[in-house]
Each structure stands twice: as C-alpha cells, then as structure tokens.
Design a protein around this nucleic acid. Structure first.
Length: 306
DNA sequence: AGCCAGGCTCTCG
DNA sequence: CGAGAGCATGGC
C-alpha cells in the first residue's frame, strides 16, 4: 500500500536528509540508496515504512509505502511522520523572501536551495539524542546513540532492509545505569537517560501534552528534568516540534556560525545572538539551520578557520 | 601529547 | 549567584 503527493514549497530531500549520515549511521533513520526507512507504531505494533522522492526542489513528489498494508491507519501514520521529518509545515518560501534583507542569508539560500531541517517525529528520541550529543563531538554522539538503538529498539524489516524502532521509554526505564555505561555513556548521562525514561513511564512527564504549550512553558518544564538544560530544550523546540521562533543561542556550533558570519570570527554574546535571531521572527529555526549548513560548507572548502 | 567536541550538574566562594 | 571542576571518548 502506498501514497504519493507533491510538496508545496522548496524541498531538496536528499540535501535535507543527508544529515542522517553526516556524522555516522542512525539505525532508527536509515538513509539508503533506495530511499528512507523508518518504523512507526500503530495500535501498539511497530510497522516499517519507507519513502522515496522524485522531481526537482520545486516540484518534489514524495512516495510513501507500507509493505505490511493490512491497515490504512499505518499508511496514515507513516504519511504524518514523513511530513514531519521533512518539515513540510515550515514556510521556507517565506523565509527566502525575508532572507533577501540579510546579505549572509541571501548568499546562502541559492547554495542550499531546498534545504530544510529534519524534524524528529518522536519526542523521546529527540531528547535522548540531545543528551547523547551534550558536550561531545557529533560523530561520537551518533555512535553511542546507535548502540542504544540496537540494544533497546525493536528490529523491523522493510523493503529488504532492517531498521530499528527507536527504543520506547518503557524499555529504557528497565535498563540499569551500568548497561548504558558499557555503551560509553558517562555515568551522569546514563542517569539522565534512564531517569528521563522513568519519568515518562510514570506519567510525571507527558511529552505529548507538552506539544501544545508555549515555548517558554516547554523550556521551563523540560529544564526541570535532571539532564535537560536550556540547550536541550531549545533544540527540542526547533528540531522536535519544528517551532520557527527558536534559536539555540548557547550552542557551540551556532555561536561559531554567528561569529563567522556576523562578527568577523569573533565571539558574540548569547544575548547578542538572540537579539539578531529575534529579528528573523518565525524564521529563526530555518535561518540557524542555513547558518550551520553554510558553516560546514565553508569549513570544507576553505579548511576551517579561526 | 594535549585540547577540543552542537552541555549539564554540583560545589564553592 | 557566578565561576569552575568533572565527566569519558575520539579526532586532529
């Protein structure tokens, strides 16, 4: 069973999804030559699905297929996930028009045309991924996260490939810290992850209910959980919920990008970064994504730099 | 070898 | 309340 539709607004799928293999493999989000595979849970059961794409960035057609097609509900769930992963609700066209007023962004747009941030459909997955990425280089974070996924996630076959469902909170809640330590998480991060899972299982933290609240309420709720600071909460808003008016100004890579593009390589204060980002209004999320991608591009061609 | 990676908590002045 | 140590590993 499958369905296809044409995307409205610029979208370069391959460019946007490439981040799933930039720093290593992600067993829960498989980007293969044939397309993108993932698992979705419907009525308590995990089902694999895949999607492929055709056409240029201005007339992209997405094709979503569910091999195990007994229920249309699985296809509906997969479609909703794909729309979320590709961030189809972000108004990139409007961002492009607005970017004309900013020379830095105006120069990046044609080079990155169709790029969108990929959004995580699963809030627990987003938070665990963020904890893994706290303070360490992203290649290492990917490696550790992949170990977690293979250890606690369910294997699902789809299109001749194996993809893992990202571990459910209940499975992680049953783990002990020593088990996670063996995956080269620090004791502290192991405690954060298990503690988070247990809070979710106990109902103390309701991530689904959180999604309708304001940015500030979400930041306040998340930062009251041990292991989740402002950095994690802001990336959750940006890359999990797809909120447009968010800038993780404390992020090391974001700070470097702002220093490079807006201050001749010298550091800007977090407040200064927030003030500039605020002028982009609902496009902060996408703008920051372009700055980070632009920085990677320049690092590659000019060999990095102070 | 040593320092830095897309942080956060805890502990001290 | 701000500053600083500690965390653990991989890459340069």
């Amino acid at each position: 069973m499958d369905a296809s539709f044409v995307v409205s607004g610029p979208l370069d799928v391959a460019r946007s999804l490439s981040r799933f293999r930039l720093w290593g493999e992600d067993p829960a989000n498989r980007l293969s030559d044939g397309g993108f595979q993932r698992a979705v849970q419907v009525d308590g059961q995990w089902c694999g699905y895949m999607f492929t794409w055709t056409g240029g960035p201005d007339d992209t057609r997405l094709q979503v297929s569910v091999p195990d097609a007994r229920r249309a509900r699985v296809l509906d769930a997969a479609l909703a996930e794909v729309r979320h992963i590709c961030a189809l609700d972000l108004d990139v066209g409007s961002f492009y028009r607005r970017a004309g007023a900013d020379p830095t962004l105006a120069a990046l747009v044609p080079r990155l045309y169709g790029l969108r941030p990929t959004l995580s459909p699963d809030p627990f997955e987003m938070l665990v991924g963020a904890i893994c990425a706290q303070q360490v280089n992203l290649a290492f974070a990917f490696t550790v996260r992949a170990r977690l996924v293979r250890r606690f996630g369910r294997r699902v076959r789809v299109g001749g490939q194996t993809v893992y469902a990202f571990p459910e909170p209940a499975a992680v809640a049953r783990a002990n810290v020593g088990e996670l330590r063996a995956m080269q998480l620090t004791v502290r991060k192991a405690e954060y992850i298990v503690g988070l899972a247990r809070r979710i299982v106990s109902g103390e933290l309701d991530l689904e209910a959180l999604q309708t609240r304001s940015n500030e309420e979400i930041i306040e709720t998340l930062t009251s959980v041990r292991g989740l600071g402002r950095w994690t909460a802001e990336w959750f808003l940006a890359r999990g919920l797809g909120r447009g008016d968010v800038c993780p100004a404390g992020d090391l890579a974001v700070r470097k990008a702002f220093a490079r593009f807006y201050n001749r390589g010298r550091d800007l204060s977090e407040d200064a970064i927030r003030r500039r980002a605020a002028t982009w209004g609902p496009h902060q999320n996408v703008a920051v994504h372009y700055l980070l991608a632009g920085q990677r591009m320049e690092a590659k061609t000019s060999g990095g730099g102070t």
